[in-house]
Design a protein around this nucleic acid. Structure first.
Length: 406
RNA sequence: GGAGGGGUGGGUGAGUGGUUAAAGCCACCAGACUGUAAAUCUGGCGCCCUGACGGGCUUCGCAGGUUCGAAUCCUGCCCCCUCCA
């Protein structure tokens, strides 16, 4: 294993772009200039294996540092996943089996390594050390901190003052995470700004145990496609890495214009200067935000698929969404199966509508039309539903199509 | 051990006997508009029948009960939370 590390002249792209806060920036900078590989810690909980663009901000940061020669230590939180995370309002407390954890971890890594360099990553499973943890160890660990310290953490403090529940195990989580840092002797730990407390506990614990305290590297929260809240799976405002190209492109096009610049900043290598130019152009309305958004959507789709897929996704968008032409591929149904159905049932049965009732609604709202093979468009109303022939396409709304075949 | 609060549609949350298929908000869907699947505006948003008017069915933690009538009252059960000790 080589230990050559590049020391860049300009640290700004590392410590400024896509960064929310570094504790401490001074120490971190010094570490970078030491010229030895740093151990960069990143943990994940395999009960939630889906990675979305919100996570990519941090993964890109890891990659950037890897490219300088630093080492990533990926911690699989299989221990915490197996005992089940008690936080959150969800009533179901997932108890993952070992097999599920393995499967999730595999899926996570498949996505993780789309951004992070596998060759400079060491994967460690938490169970390696927590598997043989005893009560004595737990007491030893917990005795180093006080409830008061933990209650100062923002979300605990808020919940406490609002009489919301705080599970004891939730107090244990930061400790376990901190202990991970000690075991792997991490130099820098990465997380979102919401992880600050946990990262700091790690830093403190390392100090107590005679190690050099890790630096805490916090990434900004990426706002989701709704333009308001943090991107997260449960809020449904996310773009997953495993999203098919068309979906990925389309979801990015549904971003509010106000988010365009920050997505460029956090998720692409487009130079800062170009981004500020775009910002200005949008502010002065000398350019159409849509063009920047299309470029962004193409860029990101290409990263997680490839140029071909990104271009295809863009053509599809232009064709189907902008020009409202027919898509190239759509589900097909045999004329024999649908010819005799009343139109609303046809919509429901072919999946164009979720129920007959919704089908009726779509019809009354003018969302349904039939496109003949010669291009003629016949809108469907409640009273008049044309007879279908092979080659006809039924459209319900902007994105749902079905073709009738022999 | 004791006291109290609560479980409502995808989410939040109002509703404490009929006018409630259940407010408002969010999400979602559609239409208009648009160089965007942005913004904005309008409409819709349990299931089934109907071109429509309208009708039927199911729903407010679960199971019973009271009542002409219950998300709303009573009984039992399950679950969640807070406080005191």
């Amino acid at each position: 294993m080589t230990s050559r590390v590049e020391i860049p002249d300009n640290l700004s792209p590392i410590i400024n772009r896509g960064v929310s806060r570094i504790i401490s920036e001074e120490e971190f900078t010094a570490m970078l200039q030491r010229g030895t590989p740093l151990r960069l810690k990143m943990g994940f909980d395999p009960s939630r294996p889906d990675i979305h663009l919100g996570h990519v901000v941090g993964l890109r940061k890891l990659r950037q540092l890897q490219d300088l020669g630093h080492q990533v230590i990926l911690i699989v939180g299989d221990w915490t996943a197996q005992i089940g995370d008690p936080s959150g309002r969800s009533a179901t407390r997932t108890m993952l089996t070992h097999a599920e954890v393995l499967e999730n971890a595999e899926s996570y890594m498949r996505q993780f390594f789309k951004v992070v360099d596998r060759d400079r990553t060491q994967v460690e499973w938490q169970s390696q050390w927590f598997g043989e943890f005893t009560l004595a160890n737990v007491i030893e660990l917990t005795s180093r901190f006080t409830i008061n310290q933990f209650l100062h953490r923002e979300d605990f403090a808020n919940r406490y003052s609002q009489n919301q529940p705080i599970a004891i195990t939730e107090m244990l989580y930061p400790l376990m995470q901190a202990y991970d840092s000690v075991v792997i002797e991490s130099d820098v730990e990465f997380g979102g700004t919401d992880q600050m407390f946990n990262l700091l506990v790690g830093r403190e614990l390392q100090g107590m145990m005679g190690q050099t305290p890790q630096q805490c590297f916090m990434m900004p929260i990426l706002v989701g496609t709704d333009g308001v809240q943090k991107m997260s799976k449960s809020l449904g405002n996310y773009v997953a890495l495993e999203e098919p190209p068309q979906e990925m492109y389309g979801k990015l096009m549904s971003l509010p214009d106000s988010l365009i610049a920050s997505y460029y900043e956090y998720l692409t290598d487009v130079p800062d200067a170009d981004i500020s130019e775009m910002r200005q152009a949008m502010e002065s309305e000398s350019a159409n935000p849509m063009d920047f958004k299309k470029r962004l959507a193409r860029y990101i789709t290409a990263v997680f698929h490839d140029d071909g897929a990104a271009n295809a996704a863009e053509s599809h968008f232009e064709q189907v969404v902008q020009r409202r032409d027919l898509p190239d591929d759509m589900p097909e149904f045999s004329i024999a199966d649908v010819a005799d159905l009343p139109i609303n049932r046809l919509l429901a049965q072919t999946g164009l509508a979720a129920s007959n009732g919704e089908a009726r609604r779509l019809i009354t709202q003018g969302a349904v039309e039939i496109i003949r093979s010669d291009g003629e468009r016949i809108s469907v109303s409640a009273e008049s539903a044309p007879t279908l022939a092979p080659g006809d396409v039924v459209r319900a709304g902007r994105r749902r199509y079905v073709r009738v075949v022999e």
